[in-house]
Amino acid sequence: MDQMPYAEEHASAGGGAGRGYYSDVLGDFLDSIRKLESEYMSVMRERYGSAGGVPNTPVSHALDGTS
């Protein structure tokens, strides 16, 4: 049997997006999540006040690039 390697087969079928593409998509997704988190925290501070136990910055470090 003369079969094409998996990567070559899918690249020729138009599915050969490079790593840069996926990195960009992931970066855009994480930027959107950070924006939503920031907006959410802002609304919670407005609703409950700064003395209401809502931190000024997110407690989670999952999206800030330090973990």
Score class of each variant (00 low, 15 high):
residue 49 G to Y: 12
residue 36 L to K: 11
residue 13 A to R: 15
residue 2 D to Y: 04
residue 53 G to S: 03
residue 45 R to F: 06
residue 50 S to H: 13
residue 33 I to T: 06
residue 65 G to F: 10
residue 3 Q to N: 09
residue 2 D to S: 11
residue 30 L to N: 06
residue 24 D to L: 06
residue 22 Y to P: 00
residue 23 S to P: 00
residue 25 V to Q: 10
residue 51 A to M: 02
residue 17 A to C: 07
residue 54 V to C: 03
residue 61 H to L: 06
residue 43 V to W: 12
residue 50 S to D: 15
residue 17 A to Q: 15
residue 48 Y to L: 13
residue 6 Y to V: 12
residue 52 G to I: 05
residue 47 R to H: 14
residue 49 G to A: 14
residue 27 G to A: 12
residue 2 D to W: 01
residue 53 G to T: 01
residue 29 F to A: 08
residue 21 Y to G: 01
residue 42 S to M: 01
residue 2 D to K: 11
residue 21 Y to N: 04
residue 48 Y to S: 10
residue 39 E to C: 03
residue 52 G to M: 08
residue 28 D to T: 04
residue 5 P to L: 02
residue 10 H to N: 12
residue 20 G to P: 01
residue 42 S to F: 02
residue 49 G to N: 07
residue 39 E to D: 15
residue 55 P to L: 01
residue 42 S to Q: 05
residue 12 S to V: 07
residue 56 N to P: 00
residue 47 R to I: 04
residue 54 V to D: 05
residue 15 G to T: 03
residue 53 G to Y: 03
residue 31 D to P: 01
residue 35 K to G: 08
residue 2 D to I: 09
residue 51 A to S: 13
residue 24 D to P: 00
residue 65 G to W: 12
residue 59 V to M: 07
residue 50 S to I: 13
residue 19 R to Q: 14
residue 14 G to K: 04
residue 51 A to L: 12
residue 12 S to F: 06
residue 16 G to Q: 11
residue 49 G to I: 13
residue 20 G to Y: 02
residue 5 P to H: 05
residue 3 Q to T: 09
residue 35 K to S: 13
residue 3 Q to S: 12
residue 54 V to H: 06
residue 23 S to M: 02
